[in-house]
């Protein structure tokens, strides 16, 4: 009984396999923290050095859209958590529903982000040859937007990967592949999705809110 079809050949039992998967996922998230950590370090250094112009540049970001996006992401974390709960408790109808909701919210976030990016193009705030800064110290204002685009871009890239994962899980869920005995796929994707949300929870105040105290 211990060696059912769900346990890979090299594991003794399902507990060992599940514990290994969870530990592996947390280690992967640790690498992600360090990956984003490099960007946050760069941000902290330049924000401290060029504090004034960073505040000015921050004011050009769209506070409303940023807030809306934050809410969207937080709700998507809720739907994701409910999806994991549905998988664990074997609610086979609830799981696809929650995955669809998470996907829609994720796409909505990316849509709002796209609107924000296009605004930056219109206002010539995209770093590079076309960059125009009306205030003082344009090189360091550009630095703010370089960081803005790399950090939010890297975050959006992670969102895209997450949405693709959700779509795959959705197909598997419709085929009835998940149940109380077998839900690790959803659990892993959930951990990842929450991590991507948390990154945004840090990005939002650092980029949008620094001049609103």
């Amino acid at each position: 009984m211990s060696h059912s079809s769900q346990v890979a050949h090299h594991f003794e039992d399902i507990e060992q396999q599940n514990e290994s998967l969870v530990l592996g996922m947390w280690l992967f998230l640790a690498t992600e923290v360090m990956f984003f950590g490099g960007l946050f370090t760069a941000y902290v250094v330049y924000r401290t050095t060029y504090s004034e112009v960073f505040h000015e540049a921050s004011r050009t970001l769209d506070f409303t859209l940023g807030t809306v996006n934050t809410l969207i992401l937080l709700v998507s974390s809720l739907t994701m958590a409910m999806g994991v709960y549905a998988a664990k408790t074997g609610r086979r109808n609830l799981l696809p529903l929650m995955l669809v909701a998470t996907i829609i919210l994720g796409l909505a976030f990316l849509g709002v982000k796209a609107v924000e990016y296009s605004q930056k193009f219109e206002h010539h705030l995209v770093p590079g040859a076309g960059f125009v800064w009306p205030g003082g110290n344009p090189p360091h204002a550009q630095l703010f937007f370089v960081l803005y685009f790399i950090m939010t871009g890297m975050h959006a890239f992670h969102m895209v990967i997450g949405i693709v994962m959700m779509a795959m899980l959705l197909v598997m869920a419709m085929l009835g592949k998940f149940g109380p005995e077998r839900y690790m796929g959803v659990e892993m994707a959930g951990l990842y999705w929450h991590f991507v949300d948390i990154v945004w929870v840090f990005l939002f105040p650092l980029l949008y809110l620094i001049d609103r105290s």
């Binding site: 690498t31 990956f35 950590g37 490099g38 960007l39 770093p127 590079g128 630095l143």
Partner: peptide, 20 residues
């Protein structure tokens, strides 16, 4: 991962010619 992000930043700087 920190090497990874440093190399990404080098590539961004060189390809898009923006100052990092």
């Amino acid at each position: 991962p920190v090497l990874g992000i440093s190399l990404v930043l080098i590539m961004v700087e060189r390809v898009w010619r923006v100052g990092i």
